[in-house]
Design a protein around this nucleic acid. Structure first.
Lengths: 194, 194
DNA sequence: AATGTTTTGTACTAAATGGTAAAGAACATA
DNA sequence: TATGTTCTTTACCATTTAGTACAAAACATT
């Protein structure tokens, strides 16, 4: 019932594939590239991911979201000031290593690349970003209730604006890979939270 | 001195290639796709564009920028109210046909896809977006001088913020392909111009 | 009509790519 | 040790793709 043992862990190789997809995008990444990065052979790969590259990409999106969202939710829950949580979220662009943040937003990249070639994958990425918007929304409603946010505009609209700002920074930070400029820009965007 | 006549015009076929690149992105578009769209054969193609797909893409970026920027500069010059020009620029997202605007910002897409695989092409797209930022900057300084803009913050920072908002909308409009939602979002972003 | 020039069309090559198939390796259980 | 099961490895195939080469076509000039 239990044959030859697997030499790899699914979630682990999905994580390794993430880096490639994030840096090169979906189309520019070949299955052979992925195999090399994951350290497994074709046979194992197509057995574990019968849908090939596409199925792998879906799982990469899923895992990425899982990791990012659960961590952020914990951070928000642990935070005394939901507004400060949002600020830190945006400021992480300039505090995180350049190598990472220069790749932009993984989901934003996916939408940009795939919205006209693979609607299914694009929609998956879009839904994950909606979860981020929801997180903003949660933080804002809490803050308004606690009197930690003067701005009394519709939290749904505010959250959506934050998401769009986030999407923008995913592109702009590659036009201006300069922490000074980005910081100034981010603080400008964050004025909406005053 | 003048051999067999060309059956196509360079700028014209560059225009035809634009649509494909814009919709599918760089990697997902094969040279054969392009040949079909441009309506020419391999021989002609590689004679006119010795650098192949990459050279064609560069020229597509260039032509796109040329068209968009010159048109916008004229619009700004013809406008009595520079702020209204900017507003219209953003509102064009909801007024233009869905088929077009759902492809997002061509330059933004290029940056998202190519920033880690082809720095040269990415930088070209980035520079074109900087020209757009310059246009915003021009409009803002004129408006401030004319007293048409109460907001007295640094026009350079305002222009950069507008650019980033634009980049964001290029992604967000595909997450929310709904004119009501987009309109609300755009008006929110434009409050910076009050 | 002959010549020179530029473009076109097609045939071809070489490499990359996605995916399948089958043999055997590594386990658990009986 | 024999058997059944699952995973791995490698070989293989078919297709797509980028790019080149070359003969012929379509002009202008002489």
């Amino acid at each position: 019932m239990s044959g030859r043992p697997k030499i790899f862990d699914d979630q682990e190789v999905i994580g390794k594939a993430t880096e490639l997809f994030w840096r090169q995008g979906y189309e520019a990444t070949s299955t052979e590239d992925l195999l090399a990065a994951m350290g497994i052979g074709k046979g194992s790969f197509y057995l574990a991911f019968k849908g090939g590259k596409k199925e792998l990409y879906e799982k990469v999106l899923e895992q990425f979201n899982e990791k990012a969202i659960t961590r952020s939710k914990k951070e928000l829950a642990a935070s005394k000031d939901p507004i400060e949580f949002i600020r830190n979220f945006f400021r992480s662009i300039v505090t995180s290593p350049k190598k990472i943040h220069q790749k932009g937003c993984f989901f934003g990249n996916a939408i940009a690349e795939l919205s006209n070639t693979d609607i299914l994958l694009m929609r998956k990425a879009a839904n994950h970003l909606k979860e981020l918007e929801e997180l903003f929304h949660d933080a804002l409603t809490i803050a308004q209730k606690n009197g930690q946010l003067k701005n009394q505009q519709d939290p749904a609209l505010l959250a959506r604006t934050l998401l769009s700002n986030w999407n923008g920074l995913g592109i702009t930070r590659r036009i201006y890979p300069d922490n000074e400029i980005l910081s100034e820009l981010i603080e400008m965007q964050l004025k909406i939270l005053e």
